[in-house]
Amino acid sequence: MATETGPESESEHAERQVRSLYGLVERTMAALLAEHTTEYGHLRTLVPAVLHGARPDRHEFALPLLVHGAESGDPAGAVPVAALHALWWRAANVIDDLADGAAGEAVRRIDPGATMLAAFNWAYVVPVRVTERLPVPEWVRRALATEFLDACTAATEGQLADLFTAPAETSYAEILRIYRNKSSAPYAMASAMAARTAGAGDERTEQWRLFGRCLGLLGQFRNDQEDLQSGRMEDLANATPTFHLVSLLNAGPPGARRDRVLALLHRAREDRGARAELLERMLDADVVRSYLAQIDRIRRDADRALDALGGTAPFTAALRARAHAAATPCDLLAEAARPAPPPPVPERRPA
């Protein structure tokens, strides 16, 4: 199909195919929740209201559909997995927003404790019921259930680490471990479950899990950047141990510069000026270039995983495009990383 700007690319074609399934995924989610809450009045009232106010994830529907399409040629077989993935992410975002004091208006109107209970229930109970009903062999159902439960545990560990880890005491390796748990584990889970459902064996499933892990890392880096780009700087206000902040703290030997950053971070929750100065320091060209080099290494890992997998071209192209989009620095960082223009050449005057 041609667009206003020219012929449709493979990636655009695949994205259009999976978008046509989004309505079915939403209806599947609604049917699952309706069935789940039929006999339970409080859940029947709370769950739809909380779900309606929950933040969606940018890959919640698309990732399982695209992986299933790349593996089998048909994305439709992953509709139940996409519903499961979306339910998990929306619950996780509700819980995360409550923890950060950033819940939406619909969620704030409901008691926070009740909201948390409802989100936990649908996140961990409904998806297990989905896996029990998938038309796959019993050993595949067991593998899917294990994949889901392992990812839930890893993501919970990552969120707890986010709350209890001090940026000043954190290494690059520890931050990446936190990111792999809180952000990568759910993407690795969705990719692996979609691949298993499409008939992939252990080796290919592991490659899909690796791709999902990379996409989750790239997505977390992108989320961190968008928080800075937006001007909200909530991560700085909450002293969240982001990779970018840790890069700043580890740029150069300990000394007055690091002490100043820690002093600013201590004031950042209440002091917008402190956040602004932290941001200015984070936009140091050397810090940004080192940070972006790490992101580019992960993007190359995602490319290598897709190269090894092959698969149905349009869907693989769309997955690659999503990884590359997540790896693209936001304008704020792209500008900071640009080399400084050369100084003007003095005009030579005739003798």
Rank of each mutant, 00 (worst) to 15 (best):
Asp97Cys: 11
Val125Gln: 09
Glu15Thr: 11
Gln207Pro: 04
Ala285Ile: 06
Asp259Thr: 05
Leu65Cys: 06
Ala321Val: 06
Leu98Glu: 00
Ala321Leu: 11
Leu117Cys: 06
Thr153Leu: 15
Ile295Lys: 04
Glu8Leu: 13
Pro137Asp: 05
Thr153Asp: 12
Leu249Ser: 03
Arg133Ile: 01
Ser20Asn: 14
Leu236Asp: 08
Arg180Leu: 09
Ala78Lys: 13
Ala285Gly: 07
His13Phe: 13
Gly310Arg: 09
Val67Leu: 06
Val47Thr: 13
Phe211Ile: 10
Leu32Gln: 14
Ala337Pro: 01
Arg204Lys: 08
Val79Phe: 05
Ala323Gly: 07
Phe221Val: 10
Lys182Gly: 03
Arg289His: 06
Glu4Thr: 10
Ala334Cys: 03
Arg141Asp: 00
Gly212Gln: 08
Phe315Leu: 01
Ala190Asn: 01
Gly273Ser: 06
Val136Phe: 05
Ala276Phe: 03
Asp97Arg: 00
Pro112Met: 14
Leu163Thr: 07
Leu278Thr: 02
Thr328Cys: 08
Glu169Ile: 03
Arg272Cys: 00
Arg213Cys: 08
Glu15Cys: 09
Met233Gln: 14
Pro167Gln: 04
Arg19Lys: 15
Glu347Gln: 12
Ala76Cys: 01
Glu147Tyr: 01
Glu10Ile: 03
Leu33Met: 12
His85Arg: 11
Glu35Asn: 13
Ser184Arg: 01
Glu206Tyr: 02
Asp331Glu: 15
Val50Phe: 02
Ala336Arg: 04
Ala151Thr: 11
Leu264Ala: 07
Ala82Asn: 00
Ala326Phe: 09
Thr242Phe: 06
Thr242Val: 07
Leu210Phe: 04
Glu132Leu: 12
Arg267Lys: 11
Asp202Met: 08
Ile175Gly: 02
Arg304Leu: 15
Leu236Pro: 02
Ala274Gln: 03
Pro112His: 14
Ala70Asp: 07
Val136Arg: 01
Glu226Gln: 11
Ala54Met: 06
Ala14Lys: 09
Ala118Tyr: 04
Glu138Gly: 03
Tyr172Glu: 14
Thr205Lys: 00
Ala192Ile: 06
Thr146Pro: 00
Ala123Met: 09
Asp162Arg: 01
Leu21Cys: 12
His324Arg: 15
Cys152Gln: 14
Ser184Glu: 13
Asn181Arg: 15
Arg348Thr: 14
Ala173Ile: 04
Ala78Gly: 00
Ala200Trp: 05
Trp88Lys: 14
Asp111Asn: 09
